[in-house]
């Protein structure tokens, strides 16, 4: 069993973790096209090589980010999500029907 280093709990058996998918920016749901949205929702990049992924330490429900090489199956680095997500995220109000962009 592989070991993953949890930024909160230290190195643990990977059975203590759950995978949360690739780290991807959400397109603006109110302005992006349907195809772009579908691509975001349904298609994983499935990269052969270095990926940035969400992982959760299940006993503490702690989410963090792991950089992993999917070819060599090597976990290169793990760190707190606050390294990437530094600020509060706001969503703008959707344009009302009839307004430009709707």
């Amino acid at each position: 069993m592989k070991i993953m280093n949890c930024p909160l709990n230290g190195p643990r058996n990977i059975s203590e973790f759950a995978w949360g998918g690739e780290l991807r920016a959400m397109p603006d749901p109110n302005t992006c096209g349907a195809h772009e949205w579908a691509d975001y929702v349904f298609l994983e990049n499935n990269t052969a090589g270095m990926v940035r992924e969400w992982w959760c330490h299940v006993p503490t429900s702690f989410w963090f980010i792991a950089e992993r090489d999917t070819v060599s199956d090597e976990i290169v680095r793990t760190y707190r999500a606050t390294e990437v997500f530094k600020d509060r995220v706001e969503f703008k109000t959707a344009p009302l029907p009839g307004e430009p962009g709707s």
Partner: peptide
């Protein structure tokens, strides 16, 4: 649901605490 809430707030950084 609990994990889902924490997952999204890890990105949104809202001033809120969730306890199961």
């Amino acid at each position: 649901v609990y994990r889902h809430m924490l997952f999204w707030n890890a990105q949104w950084r809202l001033d809120v605490d969730v306890a199961n």
